[in-house]
C-alpha cells in the first residue's frame, strides 16, 4: 500500500515537472523569437521600404529599433543563431563593419558549417583591410565543407584577396 502510494506520488511529481518544463521553455523561446520577429520587421521596414525611396533618416530609425530587438533576443538566448545572423546582416548593411564581423563570428561559432557566413565575415574583414584574417577565415571555411565546387569558389576568393594585397 505504502509502495503504491509512493509510486503514485512520484508519478504525479514527474508529470508536474514534465508538463511545467516545456511551458518555461516555450515562454523563453517565445520572447526571444518575438524580439527577433520584431527586429526583422523593423529591418525590413528600413531596408525595403525606406532605403529604396531615399528615406535614410527613417531607415536609420527603423534600423536602431531592429538592432535593439535583435540584441534583446540574443540577451535572452545567447545561442540564438538566427538573431546573430540578422544582427550581423543589419550591421553590414549599416556599414558598421567591425560590429558585423563580430556578429558573423558569433554566427560561425554557433553554426561552423554556415559557409556563406564565413564568406560574409571574410568580406567584412576585406573591407576593414584585415586581409590576413579574411584569408584565414576562408581557409577555415574550406575545412567545413566537402563540396568541391564551393571549395573552388573559396579558393577563388582567397586568390582575389592575395591579388588585392
Amino acid at each position: 500500500m505504502r509502495t503504491t502510494f509512493r509510486f503514485l506520488l512520484l508519478t504525479l511529481i514527474a508529470c508536474t515537472i514534465l508538463s511545467a518544463a516545456p511551458e518555461a521553455q516555450a515562454e523563453q523561446t517565445g520572447r526571444e523569437a518575438e524580439h527577433n520577429r520584431k527586429g526583422l520587421e523593423y529591418f525590413k521596414e528600413g531596408f525595403y521600404q525606406k532605403l529604396p525611396k531615399g528615406q535614410q533618416r527613417e531607415a536609420d530609425r527603423a534600423f536602431d529599433l531592429a538592432t535593439a530587438e535583435f540584441q534583446n533576443a540574443i540577451a535572452l538566448k545567447p545561442d540564438f543563431v538566427e538573431a546573430h545572423r540578422n544582427l550581423a546582416r543589419l550591421y553590414y548593411v549599416r556599414r558598421q563593419l567591425s560590429k558585423a564581423a563580430e556578429s558573423y563570428r558569433n554566427v560561425i561559432s554557433l553554426a561552423p558549417r554556415d559557409i556563406d557566413a564565413h564568406v560574409q565575415l571574410a568580406l567584412a574583414y576585406v573591407e576593414l583591410e584585415r586581409f590576413d584574417e579574411a584569408v584565414h577565415q576562408l581557409e577555415l571555411a574550406k575545412t567545413q565543407t566537402d563540396d568541391r565546387e564551393a571549395i573552388r569558389k573559396l579558393d577563388g576568393y582567397i586568390q582575389k584577396i592575395r591579388e588585392r594585397k
Binding site: L51, P52, Y92, V119, Q120, L123, V126, Y157, K160, I161
Partner: peptide, 15 residues
Amino acid sequence: GNLFGYPNGPYQSEW
C-alpha cells in the same frame, strides 16, 4: 563592387 563579386545586396547606391 565587393572584392569577391559576392552578391549580398541589394544596394541603393547601385540603383
